[in-house]
Write a protein that binds this DNA or RNA. Structure first.
Lengths: 343, 343
DNA sequence: TATCTCTTTGGGAACGTTCCCGGATTTTGG
DNA sequence: CCAAAATCCGGGAACGTTCCCAAAGAGATA
């Protein structure tokens, strides 16, 4: 049950492969009758062009790689959605690889994509510097690389799409202060990505401004999942550090933290308000609903896809850094309160 | 900055492409010195074999398609994880496409994968019968198809991996009865997939056995997301139907329902117990934690990948239906209670 | 009628790789 | 020392497609 090829058609119709090809490609140099015969035969035998052969001929595979630290949370899934919105209608396929927050796994993934001959790569990195040289090499070897969310050192000349972590974090922390929090803890992201530092610096700036900064309130984590949020709160409890608000690096961490609080009998937001930084629907699908910086994730994916297409079309295209706006949405987890004494 | 090919190396070393190829492939018919020279040159110019050329030559692309109704919830992501556990080490790439619960989109996806020449397809369908003929055609044209979770009509001779929906649903509903629920609502899955009917029949069987079945308590939905769970509870409220337990088709629906209840001031599990059918980490990352039928999703993906590999190796391989076990895990959302009067 | 142009078709190289086949050289065995 | 065998290498086809080039035939023009 082999797939029919142009050669099959040429034998069936006693024509050359050239003629078949011309008929299929709407070439003008062909007799209408011949064209009709070819098209009918193609229909009859369900001819479909062999994409692999075309890839070989034209040196492009019409595929792009999408490399993310994980695919379990809706974060990457939302971005992917945007990427596919753009790429799918153009006939591109997307190959997805997960790095499991492991830079050496990320390295393998990138090299694998290179052997796959992808036309471009969209990447959310898992370590700011570890693979920096590899990024440069890959781009030099001709595969465009576009970053989103977690980006490499600014010295690298690459296209990227991001939000202003510092500003948006500041605004959300400011909100926590406004509703009456005075001991705001920060569940900080992994030290290996710059967003962690950016958001933490926004947090620190606001608290310092109000004279309520306390380094004890920063809990460092080495991941971004539910359990990391839980562990962070556990640490605060263990160290008997008092707090009445939490600003978390991601919504998964915020939710992990919140559930841990609820299970410990702590009321949210009455005793502890919780806010996060994200953009997935998780924030509206918990109780109480979560205040968060809503990044336009789908838009982020679309933008990244457009940037990589630009680079594919013209490999000399100037690199762009696109900063998307993120919206602050205040929900039940940070309801204004006449502060009650906690714990 | 073109990639180096065997031809480049052959010119550089004044050898034929045959010899280069032999050296690279560890052929025995080659002089050790020659081999050494070639390997060094390959290293020097960072030679990497062109996967596209190999695909063309061998008629296989070393890629498999993964088609799912959606990728936003962790469900598909967990299965994908399993798929990649098996396929990644073997050098296969996975191409992921989302059907958005739309059968005609699913159709497009399958046809696209066919033009991509994937070696096999792993599919979670979104309509039991709509694309049945297409499945048959695709398999006849030589691309093996393996199903998981939502499977086609049993008359179709295909490999598939699933759990026993009826039994497991029965057991979970039995548990709800055991803890004291008497008015158990069922948030039923989409009518277009057989799992919905299977789980609903388990539900119905148990309630009938206990003489507490009431058709009013079945709420049909046309999706499996948070919002469908919410809408279902809203319907129950609107119709003023009393209930003290919920068995939901998925954990996302269960969580949507639970949050809606909590926001309405209904206590879970005190007034309404909630149970679901799933296997993602969402069930342990809500408050209260959710009792659910935990499907071994990663295992499911691994099994599906193995099945598709079998079919790739030998297209006459006999089709298998593998039924995986699912574990019932009881958590806080169905704590045994001395029933209080509700609402 | 001879030449020119236009239309339609076929031949074949190219993309990068493997592998079969045959040829040249060296080694082995009697 | 000569034949046979082993070792090593190059040529070229094949995978499926496009596209350049050439050729054949028809029609047009002088």
């Amino acid at each position: 049950m082999k797939r029919t090829t142009i050669k099959d058609l040429s034998q069936y119709l006693s024509l050359s492969t050239s003629t078949i090809s011309r008929a299929l490609l709407n070439d003008v140099h062909i007799h209408p009758d011949t064209k009709k015969r070819v098209l009918e035969a193609a229909q009859k035998f369900n001819y479909k062009p062999n994409a692999t052969a075309l890839s070989l001929k034209y040196g492009k595979t019409n595929s792009i790689g999408f490399v993310v630290p994980e695919m379990i949370t809706p974060f990457s899934a939302k971005v992917l959605q945007g990427v596919q919105n753009i790429l799918y209608p153009l006939g591109y396929k997307v190959i997805i690889l997960q790095s499991d927050e492991d830079p050496s796994r990320e390295r393998e993934n990138l090299l694998l994509l290179e052997t796959f001959n992808v036309d471009g790569i969209i990447l959310n990195l898992c370590h700011e510097t570890f693979n920096q040289n590899l990024y440069i090499e890959i781009m030099q070897r001709g595969t465009p690389l576009v970053f989103f969310d977690r980006i490499p050192a600014t010295s690298l000349d690459v296209s990227k799409v991001l939000v202003d972590d510092h500003i948006k974090a500041s605004l959300m922390v400011e909100h926590l202060v406004r509703i009456g929090c005075r001991r705001i803890a920060h569940i900080m992201g992994p030290a290996t990505v710059r967003n962690s530092a950016e958001r933490a610096s926004g947090y620190k700036r606001i608290l310092t401004k109000h004279g309520i900064f306390d380094p004890e309130l920063i809990i460092k984590t080495d991941g971004t999942m539910f359990e990391h949020g839980k562990m962070a709160v556990k640490k605060l409890f263990d160290k008997k550090i008092e707090f009445d608000g939490i600003f978390a690096f991601t919504d998964t961490e915020a939710i992990g933290a919140m559930n841990y609080l609820l299970e410990a009998g702590v009321k949210v937001p009455d005793e502890v308000a919780v806010a996060s930084f994200s953009g997935t629907e998780l924030s509206t699908n918990v109780f109480p609903q979560l205040s968060s910086v809503e990044q336009p994730l789908e838009k982020m994916g679309e933008t990244a896809a457009e940037l990589v297409l630009e680079k594919i079309k013209d490999d000399g295209a100037v690199s762009k850094s696109i900063v998307l706006n993120a919206e602050l949405v205040y929900r039940a987890s940070t309801l204004a309160k006449d502060k009650l004494k906690k714990q």
